[in-house]
């Protein structure tokens, strides 16, 4: 799943460490999310969306997998 987390985080001018600290996850998790290597749980997705005052769909872009 693609996401705009890195772009949004940079717009807010905060570092991965700061975001990780607020969301109470590790910095590596934020890095993996931004790289698209890791998909967050619905709980973390909500926390991220709430923190940036956005809807989940505005951050995480759901695409149907083409088989």
């Amino acid at each position: 799943m693609k996401n705009r987390l890195e772009q949004i985080r940079k717009q807010y001018g905060i570092s991965q460490e700061q975001l990780a600290d607020v969301l109470e996850v590790s910095r590596q998790t934020i890095g993996s999310l931004e790289n698209g290597r890791y998909n967050p749980s619905i709980l973390l997705a909500f926390k991220i969306a709430r923190y940036f005052h956005l809807a989940i769909e505005e951050i995480f872009l759901y695409e149907e997998e083409i088989k």
């Binding site: 990780a20 109470e24 996850v25 590790s26 590596q28 998790t29 973390l44």
Partner: peptide, 9 residues
Amino acid sequence: QIEVNDERN
């Protein structure tokens, strides 16, 4: 605690 409970970890 954050490291231990981190969902990715």
